[in-house]
């Protein structure tokens, strides 16, 4: 008996098959930054515990924050927080039924992506201005 002729079954495209829509990128980044901020909670805990332990441990933590790796972690933490904050407000608006159409979703996503970088740079510029 002949084998029945089967056409290749349609496959649901996995995320690495097609070009990412911007809204997909912003959604994935929301997750990634959320997990990053949760781990960044460790930085907050170290800072607060060091403060509670006394001047010596506080100086050590501040020295780490002054080091290249510490600076890099803090900068990444700032961006993740700003991004998650901006995109979180976007999600709250969506939950309220605002801006859920395709065009607005794209524009607000672009704003969040560029705005998060802009706000992060402004925050660090302000911090460096405080150095005097």
């Amino acid at each position: 008996m002949a084998e029945p002729k089967l056409r290749p079954r349609p496959r649901s495209p996995f995320f690495d098959i097609y070009r990412w829509p911007l809204t997909m990128l912003t959604s994935i980044l929301h997750r990634v930054t959320g997990i990053g901020i949760a781990l960044g909670g460790l930085l907050l805990a170290c800072w607060l515990v060091a403060l509670a332990l006394g001047p010596d441990s506080y100086a050590r933590v501040q020295a780490f924050h002054g080091h290249f790796i510490g600076r890099f972690l803090l900068f990444g933490f700032t961006w993740a927080l700003v991004y998650h904050w901006l995109n979180g407000i976007r999600h709250l608006a969506w939950d309220a039924g605002i801006g859920f159409d395709k065009q607005t979703g794209f524009r607000s996503g672009l704003f969040v992506l560029l705005g998060s970088v802009g706000f992060t740079l402004v925050i660090w510029a302000l911090a460096y201005m405080m150095r005097g």
Binding site: P55, Y58, A59, T78, G88, I123
Partner: peptide, 29 residues
């Protein structure tokens, strides 16, 4: 939803405070 609404102002306050404390000594913190 409720926690995220609360965190909108709290996160601004937190970042703002850290900017002020960044270069300050132990006593100021």
């Amino acid at each position: 939803t409720v926690t995220s609404v609360a965190l909108v102002p709290l996160a601004v306050w937190f970042i703002w405070s850290l900017i002020g404390l960044a270069w300050k000594p132990y006593e100021a913190a």
